Amino acid sequence: MTRPERSSVPLFVDVDTGIDDSLALLYLLASPEAEILTIASTGGNVPVAQVAANNLAWLDLCGRTDIEVTVGSPTPLRIPLRTTEDTHGPQGIGYAELPHSSRGPSDRSSARAWVEIARERPGSVTGLVTGPLTNLALALRLEPELPHLLKRLVVMGGVFNHPGNTTPTCEWNIFVDPEAAQEVFAAFSVVPADRRPLICPLDVTETIEMRPEHLRLLAQAAGSEPAELITEQDPPGTRSRTSNPIVRHLSDAVRFYLEFHRDHGQGFLAHMHDPFAAALALNPGLAVTRPATVDVELEGTLTRGTTVADWTGMWGRGPNADIAVGTDPAAFFDHLIERVGGFAARARFASPETR
């Protein structure tokens, strides 16, 4: 597994937080090279106001109240918002009950933040989107030069040679706002090969299987007690008793995700799509990639929202994305546990009653 560079990586983070988005945020907060410039909130797993509340709460818990949180559009570009509380829980963070933040989000919209930050630091910012692409599509309408202003774009979304997780052929983030995804992929067709968007699809992220043993090791790395022992035989909704607040809230969130996957016949595991995409934003060398021309089906009765990749140039259009096609999941989890566990061990918290 290629180790990430330690030089600073300025990041614009756009999320629909979400259980796996939550771990992605913790991973980035734990990464010394990640310079988080702002966190944009997109409706997806839960409505946008709840996403923003989740983002603020995680930042408060981790002592990073210096990071801005913005709010994006409450709806996709052309269709009503569909959310997935059955997958992520009523607040989007499973069984976790994070203290409500006393802070509010920024006055500027997420789309405006995309544009202003890219203009302030042209050629240096990596955009990371782990939810629907609505905010970025709106930002492109404000500033068509955005693909040239960003250093790179990393997107968790899509599925190519693998079953979908929302329809037989469709991945959730693209399904929520396929028009936005189509606009983004088209807009970024103009960038040179070394700045093509990096797409992290289900083909790879469904190999990133978090299991109870990973949570035990993470708690151990954080020096948290007692040992975090989650089993499939535990009553549904069992809450963590481990001492470290970050580990405890994360475990409560992930337990919901484990139960969801089990109840849908996938095993007592949790696909951690977004933390892997976050890791790729810092170090693209974590994945094997292939260039392709990507577009989104908008009209199909059975296939609306499907991402289609032309791997061989049949459309006569140049590649507009690099698609992750392989990685080393075991090495990734070793890296994740070391980072997040160490960060949780070092974190300083407010009084126990509030955390």
Rank of each mutant, 00 (worst) to 15 (best):
L280R: 06
A324F: 02
R304E: 11
E259A: 01
G316F: 00
E299V: 10
W315K: 15
A309V: 14
L280Q: 04
A344Y: 03
W315Q: 15
A279K: 08
V288I: 04
D252I: 09
S240M: 05
M314W: 07
Q233I: 00
T242C: 15
A287Y: 01
H273F: 00
E299P: 11
R239G: 13
E213K: 10
L336K: 02
A281W: 04
A279F: 09
P319R: 10
T301I: 12
P284K: 15
R304C: 07
A324C: 10
G318N: 10
G316R: 13
T307R: 09
R348S: 11
W315I: 06
F349N: 12
F268S: 08
T231R: 14
A330L: 09
T303W: 10
L336W: 03
F332L: 11
I337E: 05
T238Y: 05
G342C: 08
A222L: 05
H273R: 02
H271D: 01
R262K: 07
A279S: 13
I230A: 02
D274M: 06
D322C: 10
A277L: 05
Q233K: 14
T242P: 14
A253W: 01
V254I: 13
Q266M: 14
L298S: 15
L286S: 07
D328P: 08
P275C: 06
G305C: 07
H249L: 04
A270T: 04
L229D: 15
A219P: 00
L302Y: 13
F276A: 02
F333V: 05
E259N: 07
F343P: 08
V254Y: 03
V247E: 02
A345P: 09
G300C: 05
T289S: 05
E232R: 13
V296W: 12
I323S: 08
L336N: 05
H261P: 00
G313V: 02
T307I: 15
L286H: 12
V247K: 06
R216W: 09
F256R: 15
P291G: 12
A222M: 01
G313I: 07
N244L: 10
A292L: 04
T242I: 15
R248M: 07
A219Y: 00
H264C: 12
A219V: 02
G305M: 02
V296Y: 08
I246E: 03
H273E: 02
A278F: 01
H249F: 00
T303F: 06
S251C: 10
P236C: 10
V325H: 14
F333E: 01
E297K: 08
P329G: 03
H271Y: 07
Q266F: 05
L218Q: 06
D252A: 12
L269F: 03
M314H: 12
G305N: 11
V308P: 07
L258R: 05
H264D: 02
A278P: 00
G313N: 09
A281R: 01
A345V: 04
R248W: 01
N283S: 11
T327P: 00
P245H: 01
A270H: 03
A277K: 13
V254W: 02
L215M: 11
F333Y: 04
G265I: 06
D234E: 08
Y257I: 01
T312R: 10
A281M: 02
I230W: 01
A253H: 09
A321G: 08
